Simulated assay, not measured.
Amino acid sequence: MNRFGSSALVLFILFFLALPVYSNYTSYGKIDPILKKTWDEQIPLPYDSIKKKNINNKGILQYRLSNKRIVYIYTFLVYMSNYEPLEKQIVKAKGGREMLVKLYFDPLNKEKPYWIQFGELDEELDRNNFIKYVN
């Protein structure tokens, strides 16, 4: 095999070794149960409904964390009722609000691959860590 052929073979093998790690994210069509499970594990009060997925209509964001790990970020607008304490319980109160939710997925974290943060994505402020949108 010539020098070009062996280099191409090495690149081909490396590409396919990395493929399972970076292509195993879930599509927006199948993410609802994962959001619900992650929410229930991290947030003590439930949300009522998902009002919108894929807030900016660009897809799932491939993003570089400060530690150089690559994660995927899903965006949601969820509706959550207001709650108030009543004696020793927390009960639903009148009204509620819509909240912007970011569901992070780290394919290399086998113990806790998903976590939630609240707030918007700011592409202008954080441009260097945005890699691309997928799906």
Rank of each mutant, 00 (worst) to 15 (best):
G5N: 12
G5Q: 10
S6M: 10
S6W: 10
S7F: 15
L9E: 09
L9I: 08
L9G: 02
L9W: 06
L11W: 07
L11T: 05
L11N: 09
L14S: 13
F16M: 10
L17P: 00
L19E: 13
P20G: 14
V21F: 11
V21R: 11
Y22G: 01
S23V: 05
Y25S: 03
Y25A: 03
T26K: 14
Y28G: 09
G29D: 15
G29Y: 05
I31R: 14
D32L: 15
I34S: 09
L35E: 02
L35Y: 08
L35D: 03
K36Q: 13
T38D: 05
W39Q: 15
D40L: 09
D40R: 11
Q42Y: 00
P46G: 06
P46Q: 07
Y47D: 07
Y47A: 09
Y47N: 08
S49G: 08
S49D: 08
I50H: 01
I50W: 03
I50Q: 00
K53A: 01
N54H: 08
N54C: 11
N54E: 08
I55A: 01
N57E: 09
N57L: 08
K58Q: 15
Q62V: 05
Y63M: 03
R64T: 09
R64D: 03
R64A: 10
R64G: 04
L65F: 01
S66C: 04
S66W: 05
N67D: 14
N67K: 06
K68N: 11
I70R: 01
I70L: 05
I70P: 04
I73N: 01
I73G: 03
Y74E: 12
T75P: 08
Y79S: 12
M80V: 15
M80E: 13
M80R: 15
S81K: 14
N82Y: 07
N82M: 06
Y83V: 04
Y83F: 12
Y83K: 02
P85W: 00
L86D: 06
L86F: 08
E87Y: 12
K88A: 12
I90S: 04
V91I: 14
K92Y: 08
K92L: 13
A93K: 09
G95Y: 01
G95A: 08
G96S: 06
R97M: 11
E98G: 02
E98I: 06
L100E: 09
V101E: 04
K102L: 06
K102P: 00
K102R: 13
L103A: 04
L103T: 00
L103H: 01
L108P: 00
N109S: 15
K110H: 10
K110S: 11
E111P: 02
E111I: 15
E111R: 13
P113R: 08
P113S: 05
P113G: 06
W115I: 00
I116A: 07
I116E: 04
F118D: 07
G119H: 03
G119Q: 03
G119T: 03
G119N: 03
G119D: 02
L121Q: 02
L121E: 02
E123T: 11
E123S: 15
E123M: 12
L125K: 14
N128A: 03
N128P: 05
K132G: 01
K132F: 02
Y133D: 13
Y133P: 11
V134P: 04
V134T: 07
N135Q: 12
N135E: 12
